[in-house]
């Protein structure tokens, strides 16, 4: 013990790390302070210091579709909320769709049917190797815009499909069942999916679905062969084996991998602007151009996407806790 006392402080392992880390920390703080000071100085010189008053001014632009009431006389914060709701709508639908599709394809990779197995492989390899933006533009301009015009729309009882969207019968005001009607060459219906929204979620679901399928496949592959054989020897059918034996064990491998796929999907939803869907990024861009408050709008945007992704992360970590095998 006594020789430890004699070590001078500049060689003391309890002191030196603290000193070095303190110095590095201080240096980082100084750099940040300098950069921030620089920013504030230049912004002040350009008259662009952060201000949030514009949020209360009327937006005076319209949004194509909104789940909450909106018109052009409402303030900017309202239009940003409209965009956020539209984004969340695409993200939620996308998450559910990608999970269902991805799980199905991932399980198909273990099917006894060779055709199904190969189809799943081809789907994954084709989709995940093509940029998402390209796929979105393909779905929108090539597939959805090839639908017939309103006047020549596909019509089934309670369902109308045309270039402007999918129209479904549903309960209108006063719980009255109402089908799609054509008014002045424009379809109206209680439930409507625009082609922009459809193209976006189709693109997001097929793209993310391919990645989810790989995660699911990896999870299933991690379950020892013996588990399959044991289940089969008990006389369980393929689907029962999958449902009751393999998937529950695969989930603890799948869930952490899904987390990052879900987060990518949420971030990728910002590509909506390419297919004309009024998501958060799209309305922010118009807001930015009308107000000139680039820094503020981008701070809000960054904050919003960060928040969405953190919420997804927290939820998925919760799910992860649930599916972990309780070790006794």
């Amino acid at each position: 013990m006594s020789d430890i006392q004699r070590v001078p402080w500049w060689r003391d392992r309890r002191v030196v790390p603290w000193l070095v880390q303190g110095a590095v920390g201080l240096a980082i703080l100084v750099v940040i302070a300098l950069l921030l000071g620089n920013l504030v100085r230049n912004l002040t010189a350009a008259g662009l210091l952060l201000t949030w008053r514009w949020l209360g001014q009327p937006a005076s632009f319209d949004v194509a579709e909104s789940l909450i009431p909106f018109d052009a006389s409402m303030p900017y914060w309202r239009v940003l909320v409209v965009g956020l709701v539209n984004s969340l709508r695409a993200i939620v639908v996308g998450l559910v769709g990608a999970t269902v599709l991805g799980t199905a394809v991932g399980m198909a990779a273990f099917s006894g049917n060779g055709l199904l197995r190969r189809l799943a492989r081809v789907y994954v390899e084709v989709i995940r190797n093509i940029p998402l933006l390209l796929q979105l533009l393909f779905w929108y301009f090539v597939v959805f815009l090839a639908l017939p015009n309103s006047t020549a729309a596909f019509q089934w009882p309670g369902v109308v499909l045309s270039k402007s969207g999918l129209y479904l019968a549903w309960f209108a005001e006063g719980f009255q069942w109402q089908g799609p009607t054509l008014v002045n060459d424009v379809w109206r219906a209680p439930l409507r999916l625009s082609v922009e929204f459809s193209a976006l979620i189709t693109g997001l679901i097929t793209y993310t679905g391919a990645f989810v399928a790989e995660v699911v496949r990896g999870g299933i592959a991690s379950v020892p062969r013996g588990q399959w054989e044991a289940a089969t020897s008990l006389g369980l059918h393929w689907s029962a084996t999958m449902r009751t034996v393999v998937l529950p064990q695969a989930l603890r491998v799948i869930v952490p991998g899904l987390n990052s796929q879900y987060i990518s999907l949420a971030k990728n939803s910002a590509l909506a602007v390419a297919v004309g869907y009024a998501d958060l990024y799209s309305v922010s861009e118009t807001t930015l151009n009308q107000t000139g408050r680039a820094l503020e709008v981008f701070l809000l945007l960054l904050g919003a996407y960060l928040l969405i992704d953190l919420v997804i992360s927290v939820l998925m970590n919760g799910v992860n806790q649930l599916v972990q095998i309780r070790e006794r």
Binding site: E65, A274, G276
Partner: peptide, 14 residues
């Protein structure tokens, strides 16, 4: 219904 696109190419393609 305003359909907004980021570039002129996309606008006129639509």
């Amino acid at each position: 219904t305003p359909l907004k696109f980021q570039t002129g190419d996309q606008t006129y393609a639509a």
